[in-house]
């Protein structure tokens, strides 16, 4: 049985609109114009227990609205939504007791006190029996290596340390479902890896269902077997990562530094070439021209001293999907 069912969810917002300028502002005092924005425009998907899903899309696409609806914070205009048999916004208390939510940019711990105090408070908030709490907490402390961080006021922790504490805080009541909203944003490379590894284990070993929203394609590649992409309030794609790749010609980007002099390129499989000073970047299709061949071709024209091959950023993938589907 599906753990989350979302059917035809619609949510619209009224946004005040104003032309620039003092005169228009004065006019706006008397009469204000509104435009309607469809943040969710018929969103449907379902999730089985134990899935680890990447929920991606550009800013303003409807990601956070979806998370707010699933979290019971926001009531949609229409559509059906059930999480573990409950309608989130109708049974808020019962519902939120069974989910965990982490916001990458918002710390839920008390700023001036050690995280241990916040953990104790959460035990009382969620009414977790003391013995159960202690066991769960010790497990999380060990897994996330928090032992030394627990006694330091949260404000003195680094961003990565804080995120690890925040993760633990969201899991103390052992929710079977976890929402992660940009958990790796702003983290250093080591912390990112630690967070990813923890989430992967949580999903595999404890069977916790995870919905991960992110802008970091590496998060998705490292963790998610399934990707749901949303744009302008609609689901643009729902399937495996491989399927997403095959949806559009998967591009890579080659960046070459220290290029001197004029360069004229016309290589099959290279879509776009941009030049900024001594830096040259080429968008290419690795199926049509393998990176090694491309570099070999470039080496014929000039000396390639330093280069870098990058994945296409998620924004670009989405942008190309937009273009393709003329949204």
């Amino acid at each position: 049985m599906a753990q989350i069912v979302v059917e035809n969810l619609v949510k619209t917002f009224k946004v005040g609109r104003r032309q620039a300028g003092l005169w228009n502002a004065l006019k706006g005092v008397a009469r204000r114009e509104y435009t309607t924005v469809r943040a969710l425009d018929g969103v449907s998907f379902s999730l089985e227990p134990g899935e680890l899903v990447g929920y991606i899309g550009p800013n303003g696409a409807g990601k956070s609205t979806t998370v707010k609806v699933l979290g019971g914070i926001m009531v949609p205009d229409s559509g059906r939504c059930e999480v573990m048999g409950l309608v989130p916004w109708k049974a808020r208390m019962a519902h939120v007791a069974r989910i965990g939510v982490v916001f990458g940019q918002r710390c839920q711990l008390m700023w001036d006190l050690p995280a241990a105090d916040s953990f104790d408070l959460l035990r009382d908030i969620y009414r977790v029996p003391a013995a159960v709490h202690r066991k769960k907490r010790d497990m999380l402390v060990e897994r996330l290596r928090l032992a030394e961080l627990l006694t330091v006021p949260v404000r003195q922790l680094s961003l990565g340390q804080r995120m690890r504490c925040d993760l633990a805080a969201s899991l103390l009541h052992a929710p079977p479902l976890l929402f992660l909203d940009e958990p790796t944003i702003g983290l250093d490379a080591v912390s990112k890896l630690a967070v990813r590894e923890f989430v992967r284990d949580l999903n595999r070993e404890n069977g916790v269902t995870v919905i991960l929203t992110t802008h970091d394609m590496d998060d998705i590649e490292a963790l998610c077997s399934r990707v749901i992409m949303i744009g302008r309030g609609q689901i643009l794609f729902d399937g495996t990562l491989e399927k997403l790749r095959s949806c559009i010609p998967m591009e890579r980007r080659l960046v070459v530094n220290g290029v001197a002099g004029e360069v004229a390129l016309d290589i099959a499989g290279v879509r776009q070439v941009t030049r900024e000073g001594d830096r040259l970047s080429l968008h290419f299709d690795p199926d049509r021209i393998p990176p090694a061949d491309l570099i070999a071709q470039l080496s014929r024209q000039f000396l390639v001293r330093d280069f870098l091959v990058e994945n296409q950023p998620i924004e670009e993938t989405v942008a190309r999907l937009y273009a393709e589907w003329r949204l």
């Binding site: 104003r18 003092l22 502002a25 004065l26 706006g28 005092v29």
Partner: peptide, 15 residues
């Protein structure tokens, strides 16, 4: 000054 006025006019209920 203009900017402040604009900002304030936006919040007509408050004003």
């Amino acid at each position: 000054l203009r900017l402040r006025c604009l900002l304030l006019l936006q919040y007509r209920v408050a004003a």
